[in-house]
Design a protein around this nucleic acid. Sequence first.
DNA 1: AGAATAATATACCGACCGGTATGGATGAGT
DNA 2: ACTCATCCATACCGGTCGGTATATTATTCT
Lengths: 201, 201
Amino acid sequence: MDIKQPDQSRNTILQAAYCEIHRKGYQAASIADILSDTGLTKGALYHHFPTKHALGLAVIEEIIGDRLGRLLSDPIRESEKPIDALLYLIIHVDQQVPADYMELGCPLNNLMQEMSPLDHEFKSKLNAILRNWQDTIEWALSTGQAQGEIRPDVDPKAAALFIVSAWEGCVGIAKNLQSGEAFRTCMQQLHDYVVSLCAGR
Amino acid sequence: MDIKQPDQSRNTILQAAYCEIHRKGYQAASIADILSDTGLTKGALYHHFPTKHALGLAVIEEIIGDRLGRLLSDPIRESEKPIDALLYLIIHVDQQVPADYMELGCPLNNLMQEMSPLDHEFKSKLNAILRNWQDTIEWALSTGQAQGEIRPDVDPKAAALFIVSAWEGCVGIAKNLQSGEAFRTCMQQLHDYVVSLCAGR
DNA sequence: AGAATAATATACCGACCGGTATGGATGAGT
DNA sequence: ACTCATCCATACCGGTCGGTATATTATTCT
C-alpha cells in the first residue's frame, strides 16, 4: 500500500463516480465499476461516503454544478454584453466541451431525466443547478433589454426557461442521433430564436 | 387458473411493461414488478417474449410508436392547414395526454436518454419514431411554405429538428420542475418560435 | 514513544435480478 | 377419444448489487 492521501482519494472516487454516472446513469453505475478504475476499494469509498446515494449527491454538487457554472454561466455573467456572450456560447459550446459529451449527453440533463421523478433530494439539487443557469440567462435577457438589444415585450423569465429547455432538448436529440451535425443545426435554430428576440427584427 | 387467452395475456404484459418502464425506466423496471400488477407469472412472459430486451423493443414498437403517431403526427397529417394543427397541438397537447405524463415525461424521450447510448437496437427503433415525428413536422412546414404561410427562407428540415428537440426539452424540464405551469409557458415560447417562421412577421 | 484515530483493504452477507427447467393445464386437430 | 402443440405456473439457479464487519496500516496527537 502507498501513502494515504484522504483528500486525493475522495476526489479520485468523486471523479470516477462522475464518469461512471455520466456513462451509465446513476442507477446503472455500480460501485465495483467506479472503484475498478481507481486503485481503491470499497473500504475507501464507504469511509468517505456513507451510501451510494450520498456519493451521487456529492457528484452533483461538487462536480456537475461546478462545471456547468464555469462553462455556461460564468462567461455570460462576466461579459459586458451578455447577449453576445450567450449567442457565442450557443454556437460554440460544442467546441468547449469534452468529445464524449456528444454521445453521452449533458450530465445534468441525464440525471434530471433519470432521477428527478424517483428521488426528491436528487431533484432539488439538480433543479438548483438548472435554476442557476436559467437565472443567468434571464439576467442576460434583462440586461439586454436595458441595453436596448432585446425587445421590451420579451418576457425574460419565460424566454430563459425556453432557452434552457430547448438547449437540453438539442443535446438530448443529438445524443440519440449520435450526430454532431444535427446538434449544430439544432443550436443554430436556437441561435436564430434568440436573435428573433432582439430589437429591430 | 382461468381460461387461457394468449393474445390478451401478451397485451396485458405489454401494457404493464409499458407502465413500469415509463415510471422507472427500462433498466430499473424489474420483471417481477411488471408481472405483479398483472395476474401472470414469468412462465407467461417468457413464453411470449424471449428476453427482457425483446420485451422492451416490443413496447417501443407496438405501444410507444403507435401512441405518439396517433397523438402528434396524425392530427397534422390529416389537417388541410397543417401549420394550424401544429400550433394547436403545441398549445393544447398537455390536455390530450394522461395526467401522469407531466411527472413522468415523454416515454420516447425517457427511453432515448436512457438507452440510446447503451443499445443500438433501442436506438434505431427509437430514432425511427423520432424521425417519423420530425418528418411530419417538416412536411407541415413545407406545406405551409407552399400555402404561403411559412416564409420561403425557412429550412423545413432544420426547423423541424429544432421543434422536436425543443419540444422534448420542454417536457423534460417540466418533468424535473414538476410544474405544469412551467410546461405551458415553455410551450408558449415554442409556439411563438413557430409563429416567427410565418410570413409577414 | 505510545496511544488514539483516520484511512484503506478484504471477506462476506442478504436481497434482488434476469433467465431456465420442468411439469401441468388447456385447446385444436384428427 | 387420443395426440400434440400452445400456454402458463412454480421452483430454482448463478450472478450482481449495495452495504457491513473486521482487520490492518498510516498518521497525528500527547
